[in-house]
Amino acid sequence: MKMLLALGLVLITTGCVTSTVDEMVFNEPLAGIGDSTVVILGRRHASDYETEPDFIECVGDHISRRDNSITVINEIDFINSLYPWFEPRTAPLHPEDITRLLEQDPVAQRMLELKTEYMVWVDGVTVQSDSAGSMTCGIGPGGAGCFGFGTWSNDSNYEAVIWDFTDQAEVGRVNTTATGQSYMPAVVVPIPIIAPVQGTACDGIGDQLLEFLSSEY
């Protein structure tokens, strides 16, 4: 048991994740965003998946934690305050839709109140694949226990597109991918060794957005 636990700690510490980040910025602010705000929203208009709300929250927390001068509006609060214009079936898909949105007086007024200058649309998902191995658990005279070994892959692919509501245009784009292998050895007690794939992707996008939004980077 001690040997297996030690192995698990080593693998978690060294990590089993590979990632890449690609950035393309068209018009980078020179001194941060001042007292303006930014909102990070997940794309959920696809029929086969939705960008996970916890990933959107992770990116927002990453930015706020690294630079507390940046005000990140909570995704759910933003969507609720602008209902129904940012529901999956009505949300703008292209920067050209900003003009149409701002023609709606309630939208223009609310955006002015929120001081929202930048909107970041995040599109993507983390999926699990390539599961292998087996595990058996049971209860016997000596107590309950499990025996076996399992492994699986996790793959993250996310793209963040930055819209400038002042210029009514797309001003930047960031793409990140991460892949990792997780393990579950079990001798009496299963020990999950989870590759932090989604967290790595979150950090990658968060760091790139900070370079764009923050005056400190």
Results as ranks from 00 to 15, higher is better:
residue 1 M to S: 11
residue 2 K to I: 10
residue 2 K to H: 04
residue 6 A to F: 11
residue 7 L to V: 13
residue 9 L to K: 09
residue 9 L to T: 05
residue 10 V to M: 09
residue 12 I to G: 06
residue 14 T to K: 04
residue 17 V to D: 05
residue 17 V to Q: 03
residue 19 S to T: 01
residue 20 T to V: 09
residue 24 M to L: 10
residue 24 M to I: 00
residue 25 V to L: 13
residue 31 A to C: 06
residue 31 A to N: 14
residue 39 V to Y: 06
residue 40 I to H: 02
residue 42 G to T: 02
residue 49 Y to C: 05
residue 50 E to P: 00
residue 51 T to F: 06
residue 54 D to G: 00
residue 55 F to K: 00
residue 59 V to I: 14
residue 60 G to T: 05
residue 61 D to Q: 13
residue 61 D to K: 13
residue 62 H to E: 12
residue 63 I to A: 09
residue 64 S to T: 14
residue 68 N to S: 15
residue 68 N to K: 10
residue 70 I to A: 10
residue 71 T to H: 12
residue 71 T to Q: 12
residue 75 E to M: 14
residue 78 F to S: 09
residue 80 N to P: 01
residue 80 N to T: 13
residue 86 F to C: 10
residue 88 P to A: 11
residue 94 H to Y: 15
residue 96 E to V: 13
residue 98 I to W: 11
residue 99 T to P: 01
residue 100 R to G: 11
residue 102 L to M: 15
residue 103 E to Y: 10
residue 105 D to P: 12
residue 107 V to M: 07
residue 108 A to M: 02
residue 108 A to E: 08
residue 111 M to R: 01
residue 112 L to M: 09
residue 113 E to M: 10
residue 117 E to T: 13
residue 118 Y to D: 10
residue 125 V to F: 08
residue 129 S to V: 05
residue 134 S to V: 00
residue 134 S to T: 06
residue 147 F to L: 13
residue 152 W to F: 13
residue 156 S to I: 00
residue 159 E to A: 13
residue 163 W to T: 05
residue 163 W to R: 04
residue 165 F to I: 00
residue 165 F to N: 09
residue 167 D to M: 10
residue 171 V to P: 12
residue 175 N to R: 14
residue 181 Q to V: 13
residue 190 P to G: 10
residue 192 P to C: 07
residue 195 A to Q: 04
residue 196 P to R: 01
residue 196 P to M: 02
residue 202 C to I: 06
residue 203 D to S: 15
residue 204 G to T: 00
residue 204 G to F: 01
residue 205 I to M: 05
residue 206 G to H: 05
residue 207 D to L: 10
residue 207 D to M: 05
residue 211 E to M: 09
residue 212 F to C: 04
residue 212 F to M: 04
residue 212 F to E: 05
residue 214 S to D: 04
